[in-house]
Amino acid sequence: MRIWCYGDDINTDMLFPGKYTYTCSKPDEIKPHLLEDLDPEFAKSVQAGDIIIAGRNFGCGSSREQPVVGLKAVGIQAVIAKSFARIFYRAAINQGLLLIEAPEAVDYYQPGMDVELNPDVGRIRIGGQEFRFPKPPPEILGIVEAGGLLEYTRRKLKERTGRK
């Protein structure tokens, strides 16, 4: 597992250039352009289970959903940041990408440290040091685990009718 570490105000154009907005919408079209202008290495070597650590206001800018779809498609386990922009935060949960707001943990992290994540209990371990973050409510974890809001909704409806 690799940790990708970035700074403050990472906007949606850095995550996925606006010039591709109307030509790429499927996960496979998005993947090669992910973080293109920020870190060309990312798209080449990102692997499922990797984590992104970033500063304040991650995901600010436009409302396009490709950055979220792309990060989800390459298998990013979670983004840990000091804070997230509103539209990005919502879109991420709805697409099933786990976001964790943990400013102290971000400050503590130094390249090379181990990161271990346990969202169910609201805990991150970084280089042996433990950090707590407000545990996402079960429904939000449920959405993320289901792989997004639509999948979550489908399951809920099936359960309901199954019980009848």
Partner: peptide, 17 residues
């Protein structure tokens, strides 16, 4: 967003921060 509107049609419910 549209994904959320679609889910709302089916359940009538959604989440808010």
């Amino acid at each position: 967003d549209r994904t959320e509107a679609a889910a709302l049609l089916l359940t009538g419910e959604t989440w808010f921060k």
